[in-house]
Design a protein around this nucleic acid. Sequence first.
DNA 1: AAAGATTGACTATTCAATCTTG
DNA 2: CAAGATTGAATAGTCAATCTTT
Lengths: 181, 181
Amino acid sequence: MLGPVSDLLDDERLTLMGLFAETWTALAARLTADLARFDVSPVEFEVLLRLGRSPDRRLRMTELAAQTSLTSSGVTRVVDRLVVRGLVDRAACATDRRSTYAVATDDGLALLDAAVPGHLAVVEEWLVVPLLSTAPDGAADLASFTAALRRLRDLLVPCATAGAVPAAGPAHLPAPSVSRR
Amino acid sequence: MLGPVSDLLDDERLTLMGLFAETWTALAARLTADLARFDVSPVEFEVLLRLGRSPDRRLRMTELAAQTSLTSSGVTRVVDRLVVRGLVDRAACATDRRSTYAVATDDGLALLDAAVPGHLAVVEEWLVVPLLSTAPDGAADLASFTAALRRLRDLLVPCATAGAVPAAGPAHLPAPSVSRR
DNA sequence: AAAGATTGACTATTCAATCTTG
DNA sequence: CAAGATTGAATAGTCAATCTTT
C-alpha cells in the first residue's frame, strides 16, 4: 500500500491546478514572445494598455498598482523604464500634490497601436479558436469557459467588481504577501 | 468617432485574456500565501512535489527543468536553496556522470505531507467549489472547464502529452524567450 | 562537438525605510 | 500621523560563458 503522501500526490485537484498552471504559463510565454518584437515585457504592455484606455490616457501611480499585480514600488520602476523610452510621461496632480500621474505619450499609444493586433491574434489562435473548435457546440464552449472564468474572478478579486456597491466588507484583500525569512 | 487604438482596446479577446490573467494571478496569490506557512515558494513546492511523485523520489536536473517553467540554471538555484534547507539532496548518476539527481529527503517528504492538504483545500475552496456551485449542473461545469483546460494545454504544450508517439514534429517549442536589449 | 550542470553578470521585483504633502 | 511615491537593500530568475563527461 502507499504512504499518506503518495495518495494525495495524485489528487484530481492537483491535476486541475496543474492544468491551469501549465495552460497559463504556456499562453503567457506566447504572448511574451510576441511582445518581445516591440521590446516590451508583459507588465510594461499592461501598464501601457491601462493608460491607453483611461480617460486622458492617464492614471495615478496608486491606481496602476491596484490594477496591475505590482506593488507601489514595482509600478514606480516600470514607469521609470517606460519614461526613459519615451512611452510614458509623469505629470503632477493639480488637486493632490502627493499624487503623480503616469500619462501615455503619443509614442506610447503608437506602440500600442502596433502591438495590439498581433497580441489579439495570439489570443485568437491559442485561446479563442481552440475553444470554438469543439465537436457539438463550439460557441457555447467559449461562452461557458468565459463565464466560468468571470465567476472565479469575481469571487477571487471582489474589488474587480468596481462600480458596484462599495457597501459592506473590506475593500481589499488582506494582502496575500509571502512571509520573508 | 474613436481612433484605431481605442477600438481595439475594448476587444472581447482582450477581456478574455484579462479574465484569465486576473483569475490565475489571484489564485496563485492564495496558494502562495498558503505555502508561505511552510516557508516555501510555489516553485520550491512544485519541485518538491515532482520529486515526491517520481520513482525513487528523484529526477535529473534536466528533467526538472523540462517539467517546471524554469531554465536549467533556474533549477540549479532552486535545488541549491532546497539542499541548504535539507529538503533535497543531490546524488550522482551512476550511468552518466554528467547528470545529477535531485532527491527529496525525508524532511522534504514530511514537508509535502504537511503542506499538501492545505494546498488542496485552497484549490477546493477557490476553484472546485465555485465551479461546482452553479445553477443547472455544477458537475458538468467543472468537467467542461477541466476538459477545456486540458485541450488548451495539449495544444499549447505538445510535449506534455509525453508517453505518446514521439513521432513527427519538433519535440520542443522554439523557446519563446524574450529578446534582451 | 554536444549534453548536463553550474557560475557570473544582470534584470525585475519585493519589502522596509524615507520623504513630502494632506 | 496617514497616504502617495520613491529609494536602498535583498531575492529570484534569466542568459551567456564555462567545465566536465559523453
